[in-house]
Amino acid sequence: MECSEVKQHLPAYFDGELSADLAETVKSALSNCPDCQQELEELSVLSELARDGFTSPVEDVDFSGFSDKVMARIKEEATESAVEGIKVERQQEDKESLLDTITNFFGELLRFERPMAAFAAAALVVLMVVGLQNSDVEGDIAGPQTSPVASTPQSTSPQNVANKTESLPQKTTTIPQSAPKAIAKKKNRRQRALEESAGSRDMAAIESSRAPAGVRIDLDQDKGRPAIVWHVDVDTEDAPN
């Protein structure tokens, strides 16, 4: 092996990084080359100096209390992370509670929805019924033009109505004289159609269904039969002319 080649391998040889074969070759070449030997010695001295240079300033460094500081920092970090953990937990809880609140709100709303809807529907139905009854009555009140087809066969005369009213006072309603005429206008086309379809054969009934304003009308005058006229088309047909 040439001297230049030996010198090229010297650092790795010194560091013990050469393969066994190559190391052996370098070793034998070194024995024949004083220059290469000096270079190897320089590497050794340099290494020693470097080691000494790195370690000597540290020899006098005082490490008393160092481990205490490390352990204190570790504890501090643990506390911080615990606090962070609690914060995150609280944030999550807050989020959850907010979510719960929203969910509950909608839950309540949903729970209320059906009864409310039912209530609203019921109220609407009641209003419609009452309104229609009123309109029916108002129609009666308003006059023959707007009155529905004869309500019942029994209500053929005001006198009969009055009699019924007296006989069943507990299930009566009072039509105020001051009922707005607007209610009468609400009478729908069907009513009108019914009136028309009723034709002349029901005219007597229509006439008889007229009631003077403010008169008490027995809505249950004909039990088992709806009091609303257009529901009882058949009744009108069944009604005696």
């Binding site: 013990g16 990084e17 470097a50 790195f54 370690t55």
Partner: peptide, 8 residues
């Protein structure tokens, strides 16, 4: 390398 003596 010099202080720790680590391999390459």
């Amino acid at each position: 390398r010099e202080v720790e003596g680590l391999p390459y």
